[in-house]
């Protein structure tokens, strides 16, 4: 006798892709549960300083920052722009924020928003000439941009040169340090998910799938790509702006490769194109990488091994896998 595993969609999902006919309390909670639970956990975590310790609270904060960069990466990917240089957003946001505080003594409440918008704008203008490039060509250009800017700062010695700018204003208190990243992440996550499902987002996805067909629909794809890069830049530059005041320092490490590679890894690990995936990816990657500090120099080996296993085992990404499992149930059926 042979058995075959059969997967069935749960009734509610099978009805239609995006029109839900909610008929019961049970169905509503079925849909809300996977959304509400992570949000609740995120909001509670900063309150648990006594339980998890300040060190892990800091990990939470940095995880939120990498998640923001990963969301930013995913938004660019949804218009077909593959970025290997998220550090561009992070660095420009960080430097503008740092400079405004260092030179003009503006408080963080002003420098962070200005750095966020300024960084996004500056990065968008830099990328404007290469928005025509596709695939690997665009990726390579983005890879070089952060390197280029940090070399530029190094050789011209502007903005503090290799020393950077230090003794910047601190953030007011630990609550700001923890809750601002959490709220920024939630706003960004739900905002991006909303945006991509609007008609505007359909145009972005259309550009990713088939830019010639979008152009023949009388839509200026370069203008839309530029807008998407700017919106993605906001998320990335905010991370840089915030970290500048957290570290009270900005320097060439703001353009470090880590800020390009970690978000990319988080996105691939979690599942590209869903926003939730890259966020989950960041929340696995960053704590994992922290807890591996204990194993010392072997950290990179362990880390890479775990990543490879995950990516090979779940090529679709963790989020797609979880979502499928959540919406389906399996049973064994007799096939002979």
């Amino acid at each position: 006798m042979k058995y075959r595993k059969e997967r069935l969609d749960r009734g509610i999902k099978a009805r239609c892709e995006d029109i839900f006919a909610l008929s019961s309390y049970k169905e509503i909670s079925y849909l809300l549960f996977p959304r509400v639970l992570p949000v609740a956990i995120l909001l509670i975590l900063p309150l648990l300083q006594g339980v998890i310790g300040l060190y892990w609270e800091k990990v939470l904060m940095i995880t939120c920052m990498i998640a923001l960069l990963a969301l930013s990466w995913d938004l660019m990917a949804s218009v077909g722009l593959i970025s290997l240089g998220q550090a561009l957003f992070f660095g420009t946001g960080a430097y503008i924020t740092g400079y405004l505080n260092f030179a003009f003594k503006l408080p963080p409440i002003l420098t962070i928003p200005l750095g966020t918008i300024g960084g996004a704008l500056f990065s968008t203008l830099l990328l404007l000439p290469v928005l025509r490039l596709r695939g690997v060509y665009f990726a390579i250009v983005t890879l070089t941009m952060p390197l280029l800017l940090s070399r530029f700062i190094e050789t011209t010695k502007i903005l503090g040169g290799t020393e950077g700018m230090s003794a910047l204003s601190p953030l007011p208190n630990i609550w700001v340090e923890l809750y601002v990243p959490v709220f920024a992440l939630l706003i960004c996550l739900f905002g991006f998910r909303r945006l991509i499902n609007e008609d505007y987002g359909l145009v972005l996805q259309g550009i990713r799938d088939n830019d010639r067909a979008v152009m023949s629909g009388a839509i200026n794809i370069y203008w839309f790509k530029a807008q998407a890069v700017f919106i993605a830049g906001i998320a990335g530059a905010f991370a840089g702006a915030f970290m500048t005041h957290y570290y009270r320092f900005v320097g060439m490490p703001a353009f470090a490769m880590d800020y390009s590679i970690l978000p990319l890894t988080a996105a691939v690990l979690g599942g590209v194109g869903t926003f939730a995936g890259p966020t989950i990816g960041a929340f696995i990657l960053m704590p994992l990488s922290e807890s591996l500090r204990a194993v010392g120099t072997l950290r990179v080996v362990f880390y890479s091994a775990i990543l490879i296993i995950c990516v090979v085992g779940l090529p679709e990404g963790i989020f797609h896998y979880l979502r499928r499992k959540y919406h389906q149930f399996e049973r064994m059926v007799d096939v002979g």
Partner: peptide, 26 residues
């Protein structure tokens, strides 16, 4: 307006959503 000899729909969107894109143009 032109059609493509090699069809160029947005394969991952429904036929209906395919049309939202040109309708969104200015």
């Amino acid at each position: 307006a032109r059609t493509f000899q090699m069809v160029k729909p947005f394969y991952q969107l429904s036929a209906f959503k395919n049309l939202i894109i040109p309708l969104y143009s200015s």
